[in-house]
Amino acid sequence: MNNARKTHIRINPMLPWILPAGLILAWTAAAELRLVPSYVLPHPREIIHTGYVYIFGGPDTGMYAGRFVADAKASLIRVCAGFAVAAAAGIPLGVMSGRLPVVERLLSTSVNGIRAVPGISWLPLALIWFGIGMKTTVFLVALAAFFPVYINCASGVRHVSPVLLRAGAMMGVRRVRGTFAILLPGAMPSLISGLRLGLGISWAYLVLGELTGVQNGLGAVIMDARMVGRTDVIIVGIVIIAFIGRISDQMLTGCLRLCFKSARRSA
């Protein structure tokens, strides 16, 4: 795995922040000069204030004050549940279909067919089956996150070098140990990409699931704010989801690295 060692080019550490900073600058300028009305794009100052109140509560206890913790908790539970279902189904099925041509043949047509259906078209059906709330959201998240996990896992397993499997077989490794000691570590880089993609999509479908009128959750707040014309709250919701999404991605990679040698050493 020589390609795991990347050549280090010196890059200015400020580089990733140039784009957001420029954006915020332009935004502030537009707001100061009143280029856009504030109900379309509120002043960043207002966003910060709204965000503060939303997270910590405030003296002017509006309807959004201090709701953050409850919303984030509700959303996190839904994402985690959906993502866990996706991983629990996607990894074993991916391993089997990457290793056993029979399973691959059995699954590939159906999986690719279902995958071609945009996730949003499941929403009406999910509402009929599960009603508004937790179950629908988890269903949508699980369904959407399953595909990247499954597909990347299968392809990773398929591309584990056959000579490694032979080496294992000659050292007396049987099927079960071979799966955990050779196939999964060998497929780890793909597996990580699949899980990360899946988690990212989980957040997208979380919002979709919560747009349907559930009581709490980050997506629910956004939808709610639209009804009452609180653009600032919508933007706060978006920024918070971006932050939590980014952090959860880093936590996922961090956990995998913590738990698996192959994750630490191969990517």
Binding site: L164, A169, P185, M188
Partner: peptide, 26 residues
């Protein structure tokens, strides 16, 4: 295949995610 007939392969067949010692102890 079995451990009574062991192969040293032409190509690199070590497990890249294991250290030298872990490979030997595999």
């Amino acid at each position: 295949p079995g451990p009574d007939r062991c192969v040293v392969f032409q190509e690199d067949a070590l497990f890249p995610w294991l250290t030298v010692a872990e490979n030997i102890g595999f």
